[in-house]
Write a protein that binds this DNA or RNA. Structure first.
Lengths: 182, 182
DNA sequence: TTCGTCATGTAATGGGTTACATGATTAC
DNA sequence: GTAATCATGTAACCCATTACATGACGAA
């Protein structure tokens, strides 16, 4: 699971930087959207990752001449290299299980603008199946319980089920609008 | 975050065992409901934790005489000790930030049957405030973005916002039914 | 002048997964 | 009889947080 998260971070950083240079502090805020709602990343994770990507030559430091006319020299802007763009495109080329897992799906989705339409559909459909499996699992769990569940546990189970069903509905809409476009 | 998760695991185990003895394998499945939908725990986490709780004398092994008339001798059932029950009650006595965090809230909620009504209300209200703060944060993030967002990023942001709003609605219902009872 | 935010980084600590190892039981 | 599930456990590895350190800038 940590491997997936790490990978998602690399993808999110490259994805953000391919739109224009950013410095670390700003990156950290934006990355949150790409990684999903409750998965903010700490500086202790981001800065070492930036260094790693620097060493791989995926990104490079950009001497910030004048940032909006202000003289803030402390900031280090990063920009993506051709090599990094290549890496990004490489990642976004193929769909597969790694694209529709919880830890990575949102990150891929946020970069859909750079993904081929056919691949987009495959990812969405993969995600949907994954979610349907989860529903079966949750329902299984409930039916197999011999113990009487108290109201609060039932509340939680129902809420969880509804949450997944709601995401499926969302995915369905995305699939629909994807089909309309093509 | 790991500390909170660890704590939630202890709470979930004690909470489950106070209803009757269970063995590790079964515990692991049930614990998933208590910890929240996407936070399954591996055996590599559960068994060491069980050992820890054994050492603390919160739980004890129970010689499984005859399990449902079948002769399964491999299984080790655990049951809660008076000391463990004391610990559990101690934890459930007070509300506070640690009760309404993402990592712990569901676990507390699943044990609400053992929690005083006034404490239940406090926890629910605390959770609601936490969620409202998150909405402000998400909206802030959106309004501060100078860059034009593409449709997919907007989709994600909206979905995230809706998710939180939906949980608030759920909490509101829980608060309401809590008030009705008293 | 002091507090909060912006901004970058490092080191230690610990938690959790993954992988491995083992064996009983059930179903086909 | 053999594959899948049930069942328990250990050890290493890695990742991510936490805490710490530093400093500039803007506002009150």
């Amino acid at each position: 699971m940590s491997l997936k998260k790490k990978f998602a971070l690399e993808l999110a950083v490259l994805g953000l930087l391919c739109r224009g240079p950013l410095h670390g502090y700003e990156l950290r805020k934006r990355v949150t959207i790409h990684l999903g709602p409750f998965r903010a990343i700490s500086f202790g994770s981001l800065y070492p990752e930036l260094k790693r990507l620097l060493n791989l030559n995926y990104i490079e430091e950009k001497e910030s001449t004048t940032e909006r006319g202000l003289t803030k020299r402390a900031r280090i802007s990063y920009q993506i290299t051709p090599c990094g763009t290549g890496r990004l495109n490489e990642i976004l080329k193929n769909s597969g299980p790694e694209t529709w897992e919880d830890e990575t799906f949102t990150t891929y989705l946020s970069l859909f603008a750079r993904v081929a339409s056919s691949v987009r559909l495959q990812i969405l459909q993969g995600r949907k199946i994954r979610l349907q499996e989860r529903i079966s699992l949750l329902q299984d769990q409930l039916s197999k319980t011999d113990q009487q569940l108290d109201i609060y546990t039932i509340q939680i189970s129902n809420y969880n089920l509804d949450s997944v069903q709601r995401e499926i509905k969302w995915i369905d809409e995305l699939i629909l609008s994807e089909r309309k476009e093509s």
